[in-house]
Computed example of a mutant assay.
Amino acid sequence: MKLATLRLNGSTAAARIDGGSAVLIEPYSSVSELLRNPNWQRIAAEAAGAVTDLADADYAPVVPHPTKIVCVGLNYANHIEEMGRELPRYPTLFAKFPEALIGAYDDIHVPAYADQQVDWEGELAVVVGKKARTVQASDAGEYIAGFAVANDVTMRDYQYRTQQWLQGKTFEGTCPIGPTLVTPDEFSLGATLNTLVDGATVQSDSTGDLVFTPARLIEYISHIVTLQAGDVILTGTPGGVGHPTGTHLSDGQTLTTEINGLGTLRNTVRVAAPVPVG
């Protein structure tokens, strides 16, 4: 099953994607709200609301209101090798705030003062389906609502100002996620993740290269903090980010992120004009 949060008539609505159409899941305003109902799977499957054509769909972030976004750094074996590091014993975690999230085809908004080292990080996103506390990896599958595509667009100059990464990772309006949430019965690890800049492939790897799988991440994180339905885990990015080679995104470039079986994000970088002085 595929679910989306669509912008419609000045508001948003949760929807089930059926081929080229979206069936609204009334009265839920988003997938975030839907997932907070313990019966969300049945409700979504049985929904028979208004039908809208996807040809002109305006996708909001698939889960626009998570209580937390937990991100994982250095979680692809080849990316770790690219950085000259050893495989970690434990996940490297940092946070992102909901204000960073944008829809699958929204512009990436970059302030003029932060446009020097804008980098891409294509990622597999895991969406939590129910409250998770001290979960074991063997049971973690029961807590996964589904998967989506994301890109952890990063301001490298801000990230490396200190040893703490958050400041470069959570700029508002920079992190696309979507276009849909795909339930686990329709997706499995091993699918290929590709990131392209203006049509040129810069990242390509199998999601099976993750050092810490979604199940292990849910186990580890849920022993630190309670995960709530609709929370997001960004599982890390493979090798091929721009920063090691001094390559960065600039105004007007198109960033495409795709994972086989999950869909495609397509976002244009828009650098705000500098504010006049005086």
Rank of each mutant, 00 (worst) to 15 (best):
A14T: 08
T134V: 14
V127K: 09
V23L: 10
G129E: 05
V275Q: 11
A148W: 02
G261K: 04
F147D: 05
E81D: 09
V62W: 03
A273E: 15
I221A: 05
S188Q: 15
R266N: 09
G199W: 03
R89H: 10
P179H: 10
S32V: 01
L6M: 10
G103L: 01
L210C: 09
A272V: 03
Y28F: 15
D251I: 07
Y105M: 08
V110G: 04
H79L: 00
V232S: 02
A100H: 00
Y105G: 10
G239C: 12
R7Q: 11
A50W: 13
A145L: 05
P61S: 06
E99A: 13
M155Q: 14
E172R: 13
R216S: 14
Y113Q: 13
D251V: 08
A273G: 10
L35F: 02
T170S: 15
V277G: 07
N151Y: 04
G141Y: 05
S222F: 01
E81R: 15
L101D: 06
I17D: 08
L227W: 04
L166E: 15
T201A: 15
I224R: 09
E86I: 01
L227Q: 03
T162G: 04
V277M: 13
V225Y: 02
V135S: 05
G242D: 06
L227G: 08
W165L: 12
R85V: 03
R216M: 12
G199T: 05
P61A: 06
L217K: 00
H65P: 00
T67K: 14
K96N: 06
L93H: 01
E258Y: 02
Q117W: 05
R161M: 14
F94P: 08
N194C: 14
K131G: 11
T134K: 14
K131I: 11
V202H: 12
V211E: 10
S21W: 12
V241H: 02
R42V: 13
H65E: 15
I69K: 02
Y76D: 01
P91Y: 05
G236Y: 01
D251W: 07
A125S: 11
A4M: 10
M1L: 14
I218D: 05
Y105E: 09
D205R: 14
Q136M: 13
L196Y: 09
G261D: 04
R161K: 14
Y143K: 00
